[in-house]
Amino acid sequence: MAEPYLSIDSIDVFYGPVQALFGVTVTVGRGEVVAVLGGNASGKSTTVKAALGLVRPRGGRITLAGQRIDGLDPHQIIGRGVGSIPEGRRVFAEMSVEENLRLGAYARRGEPPASLQADLQEAFALFPRLAERRRQAAGTLSGGEQQMLAMARAWMRRPELLCIDEPSMGLSPLFVDHVYEVLARWKAAGLTILMVEQNANMALQLADRAYVLRNGAIVVQGAAAELAGDPELRKAYLGG
């Protein structure tokens, strides 16, 4: 087996005295879509936060394209070709839609303006709703539109690896469908994705492989198609 693109290797994460992750190992190969599933407070968000450098693991190691990244700051990890769609969208509410998108390309600021401008047009083509509202402050968008913006913003990074934290949280079913349509398109285009999701059924349709976390440890992992029927999955969510 070729070395995975992202390798999270038996990490322990603590918040003060509380241990949130217990020896969690997650790998993502190039071009693969991997979902981390679990109920509330299972540690799934913490896993992706560790990959992004937002929390520092106390034990274990994380490598990206063969190089260690645990201990790096988030901006350094983003600088190595990682994009992020944060939990709760976190758009810059007082800035315009267009400015949000330009900030998404912050790590590419050395590139010629023309290529960024072209990508901006492409992002607007991908999300026509955003094009209509390009001058509007992001905070005035609806929740679903903000999710679109967060996705387009991460896409502007042109990442090699995209980390997504709960893309369907708090969205109406129509928007959830839309989000997954876009993600499926990105997957088809060969993008590597690590996603954390509470909406297990949707995530398993998209993902190649999945890990199920419970109380900060992995309880099941495997191919998405096989996991869909696994009773452990239901147990992890509905608590058995």
Partner: peptide, 16 residues
């Protein structure tokens, strides 16, 4: 309720 927790999927557990 099962749907709300595990999430929506138009065609139960089928792939694609």
């Amino acid at each position: 309720v099962v749907t709300a927790y595990l999430g929506r999927a138009e065609t139960s557990h089928a792939h694609g």
